[in-house]
């Protein structure tokens, strides 16, 4: 059977792509962010995942407002990256695992999650940059991938409670897959930030730190908040913490915090990073 080895949650910001391309990892602005990652590399070398299930939100690359799925799961042999309109360097394509994708789709629909399935899917910086941060020295991402996309573009968004349930069902689906492979669940987005409106630049360190801690000891804590409350507390894009919540929910039982990093600011964002290992 497949084994979930743990979860990694990290921010995704387009500027990270420019920093990687410009080799700015040790630049004073970027160092506190990039220095968070070597312990994650060590952990990955130890747990050796074969597959990454990546929970992320598309930013208007693959999905437009003509058709906006609440939850979408990729089922493609390969996922292409693109420049997203800014001309940022495009990363090589990512290998899919269609067998696991369809297993996840079958199991989630069986559990009453009405998904959109994607046999072609462009993946944006929210998918590509975290994988590059985790495997910086490989030309191509060395693990196979299954993308799971949650809508944070157009409201209404799925509630925190619903995303938690999705994550739980996702974890159960992975664990019931009949192949001896090791799976890491990756959640990308957040933490607090707001790009748009007069409140642009809003961040909330106290809330972010409480949220990170809650994932270890009280994982359902954030599900008590409505989406509007989360936007007020964390910003219009801080609501991407939904990806962290779904990722934590996918990890069975108790988890151990392997590593965490938190730094303000990266671009307009409070950047968070956490590695959680399944306790058993």
């Amino acid at each position: 059977m497949a084994k979930i080895v743990g979860g990694i949650t990290t921010s995704h910001v387009p500027a990270i792509g420019r920093a990687i391309a410009g080799n700015l990892q040790q630049d004073p602005y970027w160092k506190p962010f990039f220095d968070g990652f070597p312990p994650v590399h060590d952990w990955l070398a130890k747990v050796k995942p074969d597959i990454a299930v990546v929970v992320y939100n598309d930013h208007g690359l693959n999905f437009f407002l003509d058709k906006m799925p609440t939850f979408a799961v990729g089922a493609a042999p390969e996922y292409q990256n693109a420049d997203e309109g800014w001309g940022i360097p495009t990363l090589p394509p990512y290998a899919g695992n269609q067998a696991l994708s369809w297993h996840v789709i079958n199991e989630l629909v069986e559990k009453e999650f009405d998904l959109t399935t994607c046999q072609e899917m462009l993946v944006d910086h929210a998918f590509s940059l975290p994988l590059k941060l985790l495997w910086p020295n490989e030309e191509r991402c060395p693990v196979q991938t299954v993308p799971v996309c949650i809508n944070t573009v157009q409201y209404p968004l799925p509630s925190a409670k619903r995303c938690f349930k999705l994550g739980k069902a996702l974890g159960e689906a992975i664990a019931s897959w009949d192949e001896d492979l090791r799976v890491v669940v990756i959640g990308t987005g957040g933490l607090s930030h707001q790009l748009d409106g007069k409140r642009a630049g809003f961040v909330n360190k106290d809330f972010d730190l409480a949220f990170m801690e809650s994932l270890i000891n009280d994982p359902e804590w954030a599900t008590k908040y409505s989406i509007e409350e989360l936007v007020e507390l964390t910003g219009t894009q801080g609501v991407e913490l939904l990806m962290w919540l779904a990722t934590r929910a996918a990890l069975p039982g108790k988890v151990r915090k392997v590593h965490a990093n938190y730094h303000i600011p990266i671009s307009n964002t409070a950047a968070g990073l956490m590695v959680m290992e399944c306790a058993d």
């Binding site: 387009p14 930013h59 800014w86 790009l195 748009d196 642009a200 630049g201 671009s267 307009n268």
Partner: peptide, 21 residues
């Protein structure tokens, strides 16, 4: 305008999200 799509317009102008902020 939605900020995620507008960001692509900003990209044409060479502006980043801190310019927008």
């Amino acid at each position: 305008g939605n900020v995620y799509y507008l960001a692509k317009f900003a990209g044409i102008l060479g502006l980043d999200v801190q310019d927008l902020g």
